[in-house]
Simulated scan of single mutants.
Amino acid sequence: MSTYAVIVPTLNEAGNVSELVRRLENVLAGLDWEVIFVDDDSTDGTLEELQQLAQAKKHVRYLRRIMRKGLASACVEGMLSSSAQYLAVMDADLQHDETKLSAIFQALASGEANVVVASRYTGDGGTGEWDQRRVGLSKLATRLATYFLRVPCSDPMSGFFAIDRKIMEASVARIKSEGFKILFDILSIPGLPIRIQEVPYTFSTRQLGDSKLRYNVMVDFLWLLAAKAFGRIVYTEFVLFCFVGLSGVLVHLATVSALYKLLGFSFLISQSVATYTAMTTNYFLNNTLTFKERKLKGFPFVTGYVKFLLACSLGAFINIAVADYLVSLGLYWLFAALIGTVLSAIFNFFLAKFTIWRNG
């Protein structure tokens, strides 16, 4: 049984993992420690590198995850696989300053804190060579996250931190597994007896591999904010579905306007084409945002699209029939289209959730 564990999520970090182990061995020499890599089925040789390390070094372990993705869930699985009292999380890309681990673990072991955050925004910490755009986005995300925190923290979006096992056990069931900022999630859980301490560090520049900062990272963050903001009031998936539906309304009305007012098609044809155009964009967005935990890929994505159109046919029929009837009564076409769209949206969420993304 190790006293200290470092959890490192990996995805295509060949070359970095060996160097990280070497650095950890220097920093943590004399301590009872282990490092657990949690790999999301890398394809660049990372797994082979991890296997060699684990066979050669008793303090190196790794988990290979098949058909499962996500930073938060990887961290949780790594923590649960260890019996260590103190658990640190850091990236494999060598951008987190491993020399700070000594101070971080010392703060936990002394009882001064049960959560220790390596912060870019305190003391002499910094963001390194980030450009102004990335710095601005980071500070914006930090400011938004601050509104949901239960304890003050200068860098709740940090991916470099450590916690006492008792805090992990108390929070693990309430962590959003599809998120990417697990620290923010923990610090925003009500009722945890958190005593926080911060250690300044400067973010380093990646030398090998590709950055994992993609559009889906921001999607994950926005999803987590939505869960925090609406989780206790309404079903998060329904909130996201409504936002997607709102975009569908805009697509729908733009299509009706173009076909009916500009191109001279009948209202019935315009409304019909607009309905299925909006359904198509809604399917893509819902698959990416609303039901991202059960996201469809490959052939299931194609069949899911067909099922989505069929499942929403009832709502589409109501949409078209009601709107066309209202126009025949003399109602302005824009209001008729809007009413038909809103009525069909109520049906679409339940049909989509329980027929398309029920199992993923």
Rank of each mutant, 00 (worst) to 15 (best):
V199K: 07
T205F: 11
I194K: 07
I186T: 03
L213E: 13
Q207W: 08
I189D: 03
Y201W: 14
R214G: 05
L213H: 08
L208C: 09
S204V: 11
R214N: 08
S204L: 15
R206L: 14
R206W: 08
D210E: 13
D210F: 10
K212Q: 09
K212L: 08
E198P: 06
L192P: 01
I186M: 04
T202P: 00
Y215T: 14
D210K: 14
I194V: 14
I189F: 01
S204A: 15
R195A: 14
I194T: 08
E198R: 07
L187M: 04
L213D: 12
Y201Q: 03
S204H: 15
K212G: 05
S211V: 05
D210M: 14
R214I: 08
F184N: 06
R195Y: 11
P190K: 06
P190H: 05
I189M: 01
L208I: 14
T205Q: 14
G209K: 02
P193Y: 07
I186Y: 00
P193N: 05
F203M: 10
T202N: 07
I196Y: 11
L208N: 14
Y215K: 13
Y215V: 15
I196T: 13
T205S: 12
T202M: 05
V199L: 03
I186G: 03
I189W: 01
Y215P: 06
D210Y: 10
G191E: 03
R206T: 10
R195Q: 14
T205K: 15
S211A: 06
L187K: 05
E198H: 04
Q197R: 12
F184D: 06
G191F: 03
R214P: 00
P190T: 02
I189G: 04
G191D: 02
I196V: 13
S188C: 07
L208P: 04
G209R: 00
G191I: 01
P190Y: 02
Q207L: 15
G191T: 02
F203L: 13
G191P: 00
Q207F: 10
Q197N: 08
P193M: 01
Q207Y: 08
R195D: 14
L192H: 00
R195S: 12
T202G: 02
R206V: 10
V199P: 06
R206G: 11
R206P: 08
E198V: 03
P190Q: 03
L192W: 00
G191H: 01
I196L: 15
P193W: 06
V199G: 02
P200I: 04
R206I: 14
I189V: 01
S188Q: 05
Q197P: 00
D210L: 13
L187T: 07
T202E: 10
D210N: 14
Y215N: 08
